[in-house]
Structures are given as structure tokens and as C-alpha cells.
């Protein structure tokens, strides 16, 4: 089962990051929200409407997985086709082409586009309806670093004001820079949801000490100390309140353990993601 009892709420006007390992159900969830895939049970609402209903789709722009267009049509003609299906005026085409910086190549056939240009055309298509909600699935796939930076800026700008962005990505750095809140999905369920600060809460202590085995043994006996991980180069990462650094230093030294480094480490989103997806059991 790709998605099982997944529950999330995305607030109006925020950029919500949807993150999870490959096969965790992200794209299936997005396809369900768009009415492309039907859930076997349960229900969901999109902007208060049934997923896939014309009322909901009229207010949503989406770029799901790789951008899919007609290869024999130009970028502009592809947008014309979608504008017709969406009931949107052709007048919207030039502004969205300009917004993704594709105006000059708009009359070239889609099959001649680079991957980055295809992504930008996908983004232009998602913006055609000037949607309240943007659903973007890996929008920076295939982009070079400059393209990724441009896309990040574009998404960040799109997320301002009343427009809501639901962004699925593997790139933690990207999410860290763009998103207001993040939901981590594993095996089809949300296992953690919150703002970046909430997710990164639980700073750790980084310790370099000799002998390592003695330090681990001692630390694991201390009250209030959580997991002790062996990091790169013999460093130990300790789950503990950072304000107890001095106390831990004293205990170790008194036990004859040489402490050469002890500092507070702020967790990256990537490390939070890895620790969550490697260990955590899905909520609810």
C-alpha cells in the first residue's frame, strides 16, 4: 500500500515541504489530491472540494513528476492546449512564459528543450490558472545549480501572499531555504510535521574523547542522556540538553577520560530527516 492513513493539513499562504524517501508515497499522495489516483478508502478535500473536481482543479496548478508535454508542439502551443482545457484565456500565456524566463524559446518544439527548460515549462503550465494552490513535485529535478537557485527564488516568491505551495522534494537544502513547514512521510504516513525550528529542535553535543568505548559506556549510564552515536572520525553525537555540557565534561574527566572537543551541534534538516526515516514509526 503506497499511502496508508496519511493525514496532513496545509495552511493557506504557506510553503509546505513534503519530504520522504523514495517509494514513501509522496507522488501517490499528490496524485490522489489531484484526482488522478483514487484512494481505496478514506477521503480528502482540496480547497473544500472533492479532489479532481472541476471546482478544485480550477484553483490548483500542478507539476507532478517529470513535466509531460507533447513533443511535437512548441512550448507556446503546449500551453495553448492546456489553457483551452483549463478554460483560461491565451492572454495568460505570455506572462507565465516571462515568469519562468522561457519567452525566447517558446516557439521551439518541446522535444528540443533541455531538462531545465522542460521543468520551467512545467512550472509555466502550473501557473497558467493563476492558482491559489500550487502542487510541485520535484520541481528542481534536472536543473543546474543556477537553474535550481532561480527555481527556488521563483517558488519562494510564489509562496508569498495568499498563494499556497505544496512542495515535494528530496533536496533538504532546497526545502530548508523555501518552506515554512515540513511534513516527513514514511511508508505512506506522516511521521513528523512542523516548522523547521520545531523539526530541528533537540540540538546535540558533539564529543571527541579517548577512550571512546569508555566514554560511551559512561554516557549511556548518565540520566537524561539519550542516544549516543559514533560519528565520523571517532566523534560522538549525544542526544542531551546542551546546557549539560559542563556537567558531562566534568563526569568524563573525573572518570579519567580525555576530552579534546565538546561543542553544541545544530541539526540540519537532512540529519533530522535521516534520523526520522531510519528509525521512526509512523504516527497514528
Amino acid at each position: 500500500m503506497a499511502v496508508d492513513g496519511l493525514s496532513m493539513k496545509v495552511k493557506r499562504g504557506e510553503v509546505y515541504g513534503f519530504v520522504g524517501p523514495n517509494g514513501s508515497g509522496k507522488t501517490t499522495t499528490l496524485r490522489m489530491l489531484l484526482g488522478l489516483v483514487r484512494p481505496t478508502s478514506g477521503d480528502c478535500e482540496m480547497l473544500g472540494e472533492a479532489p479532481g473536481s472541476p471546482e478544485a482543479l480550477a484553483r490548483i496548478g500542478a507539476l507532478v513528476e517529470t513535466p509531460a508535454f507533447y513533443p511535437y508542439l512548441s512550448g507556446r502551443d503546449n500551453l495553448r492546449v492546456l489553457a483551452r482545457h483549463a478554460g483560461v484565456s491565451y492572454n495568460r500565456i505570455e506572462p507565465v512564459l516571462a515568469e519562468v524566463d522561457l519567452t525566447r524559446r517558446a516557439d521551439y518544439r518541446f522535444k528540443s528543450y533541455s531538462l531545465g527548460m522542460k521543468q520551467r515549462l512545467g512550472m509555466a503550465a502550473a501557473l497558467l490558472k493563476d492558482p491559489e494552490l500550487l502542487i510541485l513535485d520535484e520541481p528542481t529535478n534536472g536543473l543546474d545549480p543556477a537553474g535550481m537557485a532561480e527555481m527556488r527564488d521563483l517558488i519562494r516568491n510564489l509562496g508569498h501572499g495568499e498563494r499556497t505551495v505544496l512542495l515535494s522534494s528530496h533536496l533538504m537544502g532546497e526545502l530548508e531555504q523555501i518552506c515554512d513547514r515540513i511534513g516527513v512521510v514514511k511508508e505512506g504516513r506522516i511521521i513528523k510535521e512542523g516548522t523547521l525550528d520545531e523539526l530541528r529542535r533537540g540540538e546535540r553535543l558533539k564529543l571527541r574523547a579517548e577512550p571512546v568505548s569508555g566514554a560511551i559506556e559512561l554516557l549511556e549510564k548518565l540520566e537524561g542522556v539519550g542516544k549516543v552515536d559514533t560519528g565520523d572520525g571517532g566523534n560522538l553525537m549525544i542526544e542531551v540538553d546542551p546546557s549539560r555540557a559542563a556537567e558531562i565534561n566534568r563526569v568524563l574527566v573525573e572518570a579519567g577520560i580525555q576530552v579534546s572537543e565538546l561543542c553544541v551541534v545544530k541539526l540540519s534538516l537532512e540529519s533530522v530527516f535521516l534520523s526520522l526515516t531510519e528509525e521512526a514509526e509512523p504516527l497514528g
Binding site: 489531484l34 472541476p54 482543479l57 500542478a62 517529470t66 507533447y70 482545457h85
Partner: peptide, 22 residues
């Protein structure tokens, strides 16, 4: 068939028109 090959049903069906209308 090309709609399936190129994956273009996804953008077509996520516009306003709906599946049967398309």
C-alpha cells in the same frame, strides 16, 4: 496511445475540464 506514452494525460486531466470532457 501517445497520451499514455508521453504522460500527457496528467496535465490534461489536472486542468479544469475533467476526464470525460477531454
Amino acid at each position: 496511445g501517445s497520451e499514455y506514452n508521453w504522460g500527457t494525460l496528467t496535465p490534461a486531466f489536472t486542468q479544469r475540464a475533467g476526464r470525460l470532457k477531454v
